[in-house]
């Protein structure tokens, strides 16, 4: 399905778009940069893409794409002013790439109503496109987590500093707990206790992996359903803003630590270098990837996108 323009056929035979969400607990780790760059890379690869700015309240994805705004915004859709979700996806300067802007004076991701969230979640699949990319705001509000969990792939951006790593683990813990909302309440509470209570005086609340091991012996059926829920999440780490050679190992280390601590598999997609030209392109209001397509950073982004696309194909 390779439509040349954004207007394409609708119909039952049209397969639903793949949804990728970019999250991560901390602000400024590159979620918006990665969302917009991956969107450009997909468009360059011939796919139709809609990037959605879900950082309501702090929306700036249009800036990363080098445009001022779009005719309609997400709030027009959520408030019912525009009824067709495809109409709020505005064109950008890049072929095949459209944007649903989150710019709004009143909306905040934490305070959109349940029915609004449900409507949006349901209708993302009706976007007439090949890929949808969700740029999530910082933090771990329920709404943010729900969009993240809803996606086919959840990408977590982390930068090589302790604060970002800590936030990443906190974000992942919240994702797991949210994902496990269907397990029996008492078990879920125990998991929450295991994951959330802080280490005090050198004492450690054991890992989720150990808890799962324990519960497997005591309640095998509960354990099986927990594992199944966790396994449906397709999570990937991206290390962004790499400057030192040793930081290139951080992603694999995090992957190893996650495997041991959470007892569930997390993918490592790759790392992205810090590149001064990102700021330059922002200042010139030009999207980085299409302005510097030959740069090391752009090529790495192309590679990440290609490897994630390959995972969807099989």
């Amino acid at each position: 399905m390779m439509g040349n323009n954004a207007v394409a056929q609708t119909g039952a035979e049209v397969s639903r778009p793949r949804i990728w969400a970019i999250g991560g607990g901390k602000g400024g780790v590159g979620k918006s940069f990665i969302s917009s760059s991956m969107g450009q890379a997909l468009a360059k690869a011939g796919k139709r893409v809609v990037v959605v700015d879900l950082d309501l309240g702090g929306a700036n994805l249009h800036t990363s794409l080098g445009i001022r705004g779009t005719e309609f915004t997400l709030s027009d859709y959520l408030n019912g002013k525009v009824t067709d979700i495809n109409r709020v996806a505005g064109v950008t300067d890049i072929d095949r790439l459209r944007l649903i802007s989150g710019a709004s004076d009143t909306l905040n991701i934490a305070n959109i109503k349940y029915f609004q969230k449900a409507k949006l979640l349901r209708n993302l699949a009706h976007l007439d496109t090949d890929y949808v990319i969700l740029d999530l705001g910082a933090g771990t509000s329920f709404n943010t987590l729900d969009f993240f969990i809803h996606a086919d792939h959840g990408l977590v951006s982390v930068t090589p500093d302790p604060g970002s790593v800590e936030n990443t683990y906190r974000f992942l813990k919240c994702v797991f707990i949210r994902q496990l909302r269907a397990v029996p309440e008492q078990t879920r509470e125990m998991i929450q206790q295991v994951l959330m209570h802080r280490r005090k005086g050198g004492r450690k609340a054991g890992s989720l992996a150990d808890f799962l091991e324990d519960i497997t012996r005591q309640k095998p059926s509960v354990a099986a359903s927990i594992r199944q829920e966790l396994d449906t999440l397709k999570l990937h780490i991206i290390v962004n803003q790499v400057m030192e050679p040793e930081d290139t190992e951080l992603g694999r280390s995090i992957q190893m630590v996650c495997s041991r601590y959470f007892g569930t598999k997390i993918g490592y997609l790759g790392f992205l270098h810090h590149d001064r030209m990102v700021l330059k392109s922002l200042q010139q209001r030009r999207p980085f990837l299409s302005t510097f397509p030959q740069s090391r950073l752009a090529i790495h982004i192309d590679t990440l996108v290609a490897s994630l696309m390959a995972q969807d194909d099989d």
Binding site: P160, P162, E166, R252, I254, V257
Partner: peptide, 18 residues
């Protein structure tokens, strides 16, 4: 990889392991 991930000053274990 494992030694690297779990060394004393590893960034990847921050906040999870003492």
């Amino acid at each position: 990889r494992a030694k690297l991930a779990f060394r004393a000053d590893s960034l990847a274990v921050y906040s999870l392991y003492g």
